[in-house]
């Protein structure tokens, strides 16, 4: 069966024969048709998020798999030979082999939030040579996540402000309380972005939550193993088979949870270290937030009747 994406003629190139900058351009061009925010896509660089309408390219979550497949279609790699991961029957990794199509394995695209982070991951996985100079210009995953949240919060505040101007005086009292709450939230978030240690601590909290879930799953696996021991001792083959199926299921769940843990660990770690490009992103976002807070405070003053 001919699928439309196969009609598209894409000349794949060996990732080791092009510069990271060229790869970045190809990645951005490849996702054009999924980008719903044309303006942001047109000026996109290595640090423009794929998702999100405010500062991102506006790609919808329904098209996330398309981004990964678009990247795979465009590049060739030598990491093409599958090798099973020790101790697992379902997982495998890729090692050097014949030049062939790039394959991004399950979970590897979780932190590929921007073209720059995609290239960084491809370098980490050995598909491309590491290029320290290029990586200096790539904002971390933690930065993209924190900055993105800041822009969404700013958008919410700006929209509330815009609505306030159109309201009848009677409606303003409740709207003012909401505005006050949003201004406070934005101000708090701006302060959080300014304090790298506090931001890192909050991300560390998310990591600890994921770690607790992972440990709990691990405990579940140990419990099943204890049950299996007990069943083996009493020789109940049907119960043993059902427990083995349960064990396999828990192992799959652990694998999925591990992927999530890797992402939250990366976010927590990245929040602690800020490169120049990260710092610039934070400064830019803080300036935007501070301006909106100022506008919000002015609007609140204007909405407060002055006593004569």
């Amino acid at each position: 069966m001919a699928f439309k994406r196969k009609e598209a003629v894409v000349e794949a190139v060996d990732l080791n024969t092009i510069t990271p900058e060229d790869a970045e351009k190809r990645i951005i061009a490849g996702v054009k048709k999924y980008a719903t925010n044309e303006a942001n896509w047109t000026k996109a660089d290595g640090n423009t998020p794929y998702l999100g309408h405010i500062v991102g390219m506006g790609i919808e979550s329904a098209n996330l798999a398309d981004i990964t497949m678009s990247i795979e279609r465009q590049f060739l790699t030598r990491k093409t030979t599958r090798v099973p991961v020790q101790g697992s029957e379902t997982e495998f990794t890729l090692v050097d082999g014949e030049l062939g199509k790039l394959r991004i394995l399950e979970g590897q695209d979780s932190v590929m939030a921007t073209p720059g982070l995609t290239i960084k991951k491809l370098m980490e996985l050995g598909h491309m040579r590491a290029d320290a100079a290029y990586l200096e210009g790539v904002a971390s995953f933690a930065t993209i996540v924190s900055v993105g949240a800041g822009h969404r919060l700013n958008d919410a505040l700006r929209k509330t402000l815009a609505r306030l101007e159109k309201l009848a005086p009677a409606e303003r009292a409740e709207a003012k309380a909401n505005l006050q709450s949003l201004v406070q939230q934005t101000q708090d978030y701006e302060a959080l972005l300014a304090d790298a240690a506090a931001l890192a601590a909050s991300k560390q909290g998310d990591f600890q939550t994921d770690k607790a879930s992972f440990d709990s799953l691990d405990a579940e696996l140990r419990l099943i193993n204890e049950k299996l021991k007990g069943v083996t001792a009493t020789d109940d083959p049907s119960r043993a088979a059902s427990l083995r199926a349960e064990e396999a299921q828990v192992r799959t769940r652990i694998r999925m949870m591990r992927q999530k843990l890797v992402v939250s660990e990366e976010t927590a770690r990245g929040a602690e270290r800020r490169t120049k490009v990260d710092e610039a992103k934070f400064q830019e976002t803080r300036a935007v937030l501070a301006e909106s807070v100022k506008a919000g405070q002015q609007a609140m003053r204007a909405a407060t009747p002055v006593a004569c």
């Binding site: 709207a175 909401n178 949003l182």
Partner: peptide, 9 residues
């Protein structure tokens, strides 16, 4: 009215 409500994240 909807004016008494706002979105945040």
């Amino acid at each position: 009215s909807p004016a008494s409500l706002s979105f945040t994240e």
